[in-house]
């Protein structure tokens, strides 16, 4: 589904990703862990198509298509979704209207007829239940005045509504208390199917107790330096990142 090969990315002349490889197949959940500054959020942003980054080399293909040729909205229309680490407030635009517009754009791109109002409402109610989000939040302007937890829940709600085949969760656990974390993780688990995939980017192992990954990768200094299964996350929890830093410090040179 997603294939990243030898991806090299820089920002203002500084190289952040230095040859990253990652393959995600449908039905899989991948966790990407790593210390601060290792390039986790850059990876998420580049996959989604943020334009502040320069891709110096490598490729990102998604269902066989070259994503680097596509704009952020086209990537979304192809079935990608990025849950932001810091969701943006959009005053004056309600989440419901925002989603209506997004869904209609995505369906048009895929050659599907517009969604009927009553079907939209039905899906809306259903997904609100899945992610335990209050209807009054979705009626308000996108993220405006929301608490940190509400913003993250709104991200998962939008993901549920847009039904992407690949969702990248960028530090969705940051700033969440344990109850909010559980709700967010439960939402994600309910949305997991054999047909879709998740890339969960996180600093801590904590989220992975709720969203159990099939694979765990450690990102350090712009490369994936270790890959394994869930046990790798537990090992990181026990030993911390210093172990990785020591072992791979030569990469810094």
């Amino acid at each position: 589904m997603l294939e990243i090969k030898d991806l090299k990315v820089s920002v203002e002349g500084k190289q952040i990703l230095k040859g990253l490889n990652l393959t995600v197949k449908k039905g899989e959940v991948h966790a990407i862990m790593g210390p601060n500054g290792s390039g986790k959020s850059t990876l998420a942003s580049v996959i989604a198509g943020k334009e502040d980054y320069t891709v110096d080399g490598g490729s990102i293909t998604f269902n066989g298509k070259d994503m680097l040729e596509l704009s952020p909205d086209e990537r979304a229309k192809e079935g990608m979704f990025l849950a932001f680490q810091y969701p943006v407030e959009i005053p004056g635009v309600s989440t419901i209207n925002f989603l209506k517009t997004a869904i209609s754009e995505i369906r048009q791109y895929r050659g599907l007829p517009p969604m009927e109002a009553k079907d939209f409402l039905k899906v809306l109610k259903e997904k609100q239940k899945v992610v335990e989000i209050e209807a009054n939040l979705t009626g308000r302007s996108v993220n405006e005045g929301f608490s940190g937890g509400e913003k993250k829940r709104n991200e998962i709600f939008q993901m549920a509504m847009l039904e992407p085949s690949l969702a990248i969760l960028d530090e969705t656990d940051s700033g969440l208390d344990i109850d909010a974390l559980r709700i967010v993780a439960t939402g994600v688990n309910k949305l997991r199917t054999k047909e879709n995939a998740f890339v969960v980017i996180t600093h801590y192992q904590r989220l992975l107790e709720y969203i159990v990954p099939d694979f765990v990768h450690v990102l350090y200094q712009g490369r994936i330096v270790k890959s394994g299964t869930r046990e790798l996350a537990l090992e990181l929890e026990g030993k911390g990142y210093d172990w990785i830093k020591k072992e791979f410090s030569e990469l810094a040179v």
Binding site: A48, G49, D73, A76, V88, I90, I106, Q158
Partner: peptide, 9 residues
Amino acid sequence: FYMRSRGLN
């Protein structure tokens, strides 16, 4: 960018 990442051109 946020809006574009949700499919709006």
